[in-house]
Simulated scan of single mutants.
Amino acid sequence: MHPKIQNILFDLDGTLTDPKEGIVNSILYALDKLGIQENNINELDTFIGPPLRGSFLVRYNLSDNLADKAVTFYREYFSDNGLYENQIYPGVVELLEFLVSHKYQLFLATSKPTIYADKILRHFNLHKYFTGIVGSNLDNTRTDKSEVIAHVVSTCNLQPTNSIMVGDRKHDIIGAKNNSMRSIAVTYGYGSLEEISIQKPDFIVSSCNELKLLFSN
């Protein structure tokens, strides 16, 4: 890893934790409330990572009003149940402990609302590793990953040249590039190798152990 790197921004879903169960259950709850039948549950993986409202709009061709209702219903389930139907990826705790012990500053940069991201990190006792936690707002603003990263940079007074973004989807890589920041793509999450390779991240790794080795160099 380049010796100038001091700050590491992490995505949450598909990078630190596997949220599939809670996200899928929350989507199905929202669809049931709207009277929409979903016959291909396995395809709901596409919701993991991108902004939620946009995913509802695209997959179900909803009006703006119905998309807003879908998000509201989704959050009814997610806020009480879905956010805890989640699990940490193998090696995450060891990775974060290693990075903090080697004086890296860690920041969370997620399209998930900040209030939920904070609860998830606290639930798994991961919040203690992070200097800052930044996500979207509940009014569906700052959902684009470029905006999230820009907010981390501005509010935490970071220099993009000594910072790097770690994530599993193309949005993480694009967001980093839009903020003149390098990126690391992980392949154990929900972005396919094809999806992330097209965006040309600076590094691609397949496990938390590989991430640890990368920051050891």
Score class of each variant (00 low, 15 high):
residue 147 E to G: 11
residue 99 L to T: 04
residue 165 M to D: 12
residue 142 R to N: 05
residue 104 Y to M: 01
residue 143 T to F: 13
residue 170 K to D: 04
residue 144 D to P: 00
residue 120 I to M: 15
residue 97 E to Q: 12
residue 140 N to W: 03
residue 122 R to L: 05
residue 180 S to L: 11
residue 99 L to V: 03
residue 182 R to I: 03
residue 165 M to F: 12
residue 107 F to H: 15
residue 107 F to D: 06
residue 85 E to Y: 09
residue 97 E to I: 00
residue 94 E to M: 04
residue 164 I to M: 11
residue 88 I to S: 05
residue 201 P to H: 02
residue 189 G to D: 05
residue 147 E to W: 08
residue 200 K to H: 11
residue 144 D to R: 11
residue 107 F to M: 01
residue 167 G to S: 13
residue 157 N to P: 00
residue 175 G to P: 08
residue 104 Y to N: 01
residue 122 R to A: 15
residue 89 Y to T: 04
residue 99 L to A: 01
residue 130 F to A: 08
residue 147 E to A: 14
residue 84 Y to W: 13
residue 142 R to H: 09
residue 142 R to K: 11
residue 143 T to R: 04
residue 180 S to E: 14
residue 171 H to A: 10
residue 168 D to L: 10
residue 91 G to R: 08
residue 205 V to G: 02
residue 207 S to G: 11
residue 83 L to G: 00
residue 105 Q to R: 15
residue 197 S to T: 14
residue 175 G to M: 10
residue 192 S to Q: 08
residue 143 T to N: 00
residue 161 T to N: 13
residue 198 I to H: 12
residue 104 Y to L: 02
residue 118 D to F: 09
residue 120 I to R: 08
residue 119 K to L: 14
residue 90 P to K: 06
residue 197 S to H: 03
residue 203 F to R: 05
residue 100 V to I: 14
residue 142 R to E: 02
residue 123 H to Y: 15
residue 190 Y to E: 01
residue 118 D to V: 05
residue 110 T to W: 13
residue 104 Y to V: 03
residue 169 R to Q: 12
residue 118 D to R: 14
residue 203 F to P: 02
residue 186 V to S: 03
residue 173 I to V: 13
residue 153 V to Y: 09
residue 102 H to G: 01
residue 160 P to C: 10
residue 114 T to S: 13
residue 207 S to Y: 11
residue 105 Q to H: 15
residue 107 F to K: 07
residue 133 I to Q: 02
residue 144 D to A: 14
residue 89 Y to W: 08
residue 102 H to A: 00
residue 95 L to D: 00
residue 103 K to Y: 13
residue 105 Q to P: 00
residue 88 I to G: 03
residue 175 G to N: 08
residue 150 A to P: 00
residue 95 L to T: 14
residue 86 N to K: 03
residue 158 L to D: 04
residue 135 G to H: 03
residue 144 D to E: 14
residue 163 S to P: 01
residue 200 K to A: 04
residue 99 L to K: 02
residue 88 I to L: 09
residue 188 Y to G: 06
residue 178 N to S: 07
residue 128 K to L: 10
residue 189 G to Q: 06
residue 153 V to G: 05
residue 188 Y to T: 09
residue 206 S to L: 00
residue 124 F to R: 01
residue 113 P to Q: 04
residue 127 H to P: 02
residue 124 F to M: 07
residue 187 T to V: 07
residue 201 P to T: 02
residue 207 S to A: 09
residue 103 K to S: 14
residue 105 Q to F: 11
residue 206 S to G: 12
residue 193 L to Q: 09
residue 143 T to L: 04
residue 121 L to M: 09
residue 190 Y to G: 01
residue 129 Y to A: 04
residue 161 T to E: 13
residue 183 S to C: 07
residue 169 R to P: 08
residue 192 S to G: 05
residue 189 G to M: 04
